[in-house]
Design a protein around this nucleic acid. Sequence first.
DNA 1: CGTTTTTGACCAGCGC
DNA 2: GCGCTGGTCAAAAACG
Length: 474
Amino acid sequence: MGVVKEENERLKLLLCQIVKDYQSLHTRFLDVLKKEEANKSTTTPMVGSHEENNEEHHQLISLSLGRSSSNDPPKKQEKRSSKEDDDDDGKHGNDGGGGLELGLECKFEPDGSIEPEKNNNPSCESSLGKPEEEEKEPTEVWPPSKILKSLKNGDEDVSEPMQLKKTRVSMNDGCQWRKYGQKIAKGNPCPRAYYRCTLSPTCPVRKQVQRCSDDMSILITTYEGNHNHPLPLSATAMASTTSAAASMLHSQSSASQPALPTSLSAPTASLSTSTTHLHALSFNFSQNPTPSHHYHFPNSSISTLNSHPTVTLDLTAPAPPHNNNPSYFSRFSNLPTYSSSSSSSSSSSSCLNWKKTSSHLTFGGPLNNYPAIRQSPPYMQITNHQALSETLTAAATKAITSNPSFCSALAAALTSFVGNNGGGGGTASELGFASSSYLQGKKPSSMVNPHQQQKQGSLLLFPPSNTASDPPAD
DNA sequence: CGTTTTTGACCAGCGC
DNA sequence: GCGCTGGTCAAAAACG
């Protein structure tokens, strides 16, 4: 039904355009007739001149169609013929040379579909299509083979064959992963991919990658387990950044709701990313009835408003002069699962849904326990927000500036983590987070604006290190 | 030829 | 018990 509706909408738009085109042509035709009448009244009617006028007439009409004859929909020619039924001597001799153009912009493919390179990314604008024709394509699963196929059909990617050939996944989060399964999950037409960490044969870390159903340019990554081996530097850098963020979230949540572990609602992370710049990151903690704490990384935020902690990384908009005003973030707070940046430039959003297992939320993260770092208890107690914010700022800045993927990507995410019990002292067997990351070289360009192809990146949230966490307060 | 991805099958947990 | 769903396995295919 969705597909049919969309097709219907497209046809409606097309019909509107054709009608408009027809009216325009009709007006021009009347003008031509008037001119012709005027000429007739001032010159002696002769056969030769009549033919000449006819020829001119045909030419004008033909030019006014403004479309190549080969692609003209039959309807148009019919219209023209009906207009010229008084001299139907077969004149399809439109020389098609320059002249007036009332082109519809959209090309008709042999199969009847509208050509403008459809872009599944709602935030992308086709440079060919009319804005009103840019409707969301139905969500669709994009296996690599299909992606490649679709890319081959397009012409915009011819200049980037390297990207097309690359089908293997390379998760740029500092670890190496091997895909071991794929499944269509309920509620999301995009398949969920399952990866194992291959840095160590015995590493139990798993991660799941799935496209956001709302914006398929966004990938949602969920980690589970703990690495039993050293992490690469790149992963460590991100870990230091994201663990701090996670710590803050967790701290806030646990501090305010120590006895209600399961009441920590699945946080929603939304992030906007730009194609080239990561502007900043900001953390806004507001919890009733306590005053809000706001940590500012320009244009981005992580907030734990009430029961819906939200992480927002707006990497597109320039930093407002004083965006530590909570209202700046209000648009992102309390969003159910998804929020979109209002960025006028290319942007996309992601929603990260927390996975809830049993009675506790889990997110896993590429946790690194090795060699001596033990997984932190489910609750981290952070008492000095100011100090932490500074640490976080430094860590984030360092990680962001040192890792190009941050700059090119978007993506990112969030989270929360959680313990599996509220009373503290639980088994703490699960700790994690979700984040957005990207599939390098696997991103179907048919789904993104070419200008956005560099936007994907990753922001990984790692569990806090021992230095940033304490045992549960209670 | 070794590694990785794909994909159908299998299994377990859960709700009805 | 049955069906649905999510996670994993493993053989085949694809890739480099």
